[in-house]
Write a protein that binds this DNA or RNA. Structure first.
Lengths: 244, 244
DNA sequence: GAGTCAAGAACGAACGTTCGTTCGCATAAT
DNA sequence: ATTATGCGAACGAACGTTCGTTCTTGACTC
């Protein structure tokens, strides 16, 4: 096999160290090099977006960050730490979207604004490009699950609160089960992020008004108690006995 | 590097000899060993579900399949081939769901039946457990994209056709933009699969009727032209000028 | 039956590669 | 002199894959 002695490290080849002034803009470069931690995270997002968490090697990330492994490991103790940091950031962005919902005039309008903000390109791409990757990873990686679940719960609680408040205001039909509505709203959010990631050309931003219109129809109070041939409640019975 | 020369079985000059007779149930032991390809695929699904495509090693898959690497590589030329085969299978199941939609009395009822079937536990777990993994992988892996997109397009076309037919029948409000509705329906489907995978305890099957009821409200023809304070069309204007 | 034999199926150690990570050292800043 | 910062070759483990070998099977001979 290969050598086993740890000794020969010292070999010190006469590499001329003419490795010129690589990094720092020490003296007077107009463009200052930002916080190395940030540089690593940004590079990692680029790599992860391109090849996924496990398809990107640390060497790639180093190259993208313009940094050697030794330097990188000064700022992050492991690859997983980078992943965790990125997921943390993504989650934080998502939480910050909540205030859009809270400050909107109506619930549905709030949802629309959240979607608009998410897909407008103004939000850091972490959220969108890495969405599925993060979902897939969080479902499995114990280091991610706590943060992930905490955010999920927090958002769920907040949105639900606003939902029932809107119901109380008469803005949303009081007959709607908040559990079902929350599930559907969450699913729509996740689903849009997902679709955006493997079909990035979808003009999601432009479609938000139309989508909001549909969601509005869904939640709006029924104008007349006696409804049309809508199969809403009737479906419950017939659905249960299908046998595919 | 142990001995090298040994000329294993020379090349057979003829091939008659009535070989045939694959490893079917010739000897018929109490526990018949199924098709090895199937065994590999099933084992791979277990491993991939547990650790993801890239978190599972071939050795793990071999162990799970009760098979040595050499044996496994007889049936699949590479790890990627296994992934492709699994994704193909998942896609096929998904396509097969289409007929549930086609044979349903109404469009919304059809969606409900599809959901019911998907989450009932009767469908092979490939679909649900590996959902996010497949999405994340398909967005990046060129070997997966073609199949993935083809199925996506096929399903989209089929669902859309049924949608507009339902509109023509008056079952769905004719004023609804099919593009927006399709996007929303797709997003809901993907979103539910996603949520199910990292919250497997969700009683999705039981909630399907309620969800279908909500979707029914969304698509049902408006009973009265003059509506309540629903912000459906009005939203379009106010949404565009938010500045988060 | 007992013996032979060819060849597919299966094995599993070993291969070469690549991964995440470490460490001795060079340089820059204080 | 001391410390912060960065470098990059080297490391060991683990990966996907290969390959020389063994096991099993069943038709054929005697």
């Amino acid at each position: 096999m290969t050598a086993t002695a740890k000794r020969p490290r010292a070999a010190a080849p006469k590499k001329e160290s003419g490795r010129a002034r690589a990094a720092a803009g020490t003296s007077a470069p107009g463009v200052a090099r930002p916080d190395p931690r940030r540089r690593v995270l940004d590079a990692a997002v680029v790599c992860f977006t391109r090849s996924g968490f496990h398809g990107s090697s640390m060497h790639e990330i180093c190259a993208e960050a313009g940094m050697s492994p030794g330097a990188l490991y000064r700022y992050f103790p492991s690859k997983e730490a980078i992943i965790v940091a990125i997921v943390d950031e993504e989650r934080a962005v998502r939480v910050s979207c909540l205030e859009l919902l809270e400050n909107a005039p109506t619930f549905v309008e709030g949802l629309a604004r959240m979607g608009q903000a998410l897909f407008s390109g103004e939000t850091p791409m972490v959220c969108l490009a890495l969405g599925p990757e993060i979902y897939a990873e969080a479902a499995r990686n114990p280091a991610l699950k706590p943060t992930f679940d905490a955010v999920e719960d927090e958002m769920n609680a907040a949105i639900r609160k606003l939902f029932v408040a809107a119901q109380a205001r008469g803005e949303i039909d009081a007959a709607i089960d908040p559990d079902a509505a929350m599930l559907l709203i969450n699913a729509i959010g996740d689903g849009l992020v997902l679709r955006n990631s493997f079909e990035p050309d979808l003009p999601l931003e432009r479609m938000m008004p139309a989508l909001a219109g549909l969601i509005g129809r869904m939640l709006a109070p029924a104008p007349a108690p006696t409804a049309s041939p809508a199969p809403s409640p009737a479906a419950s019975a017939s659905i249960s006995d299908i046998t595919p």
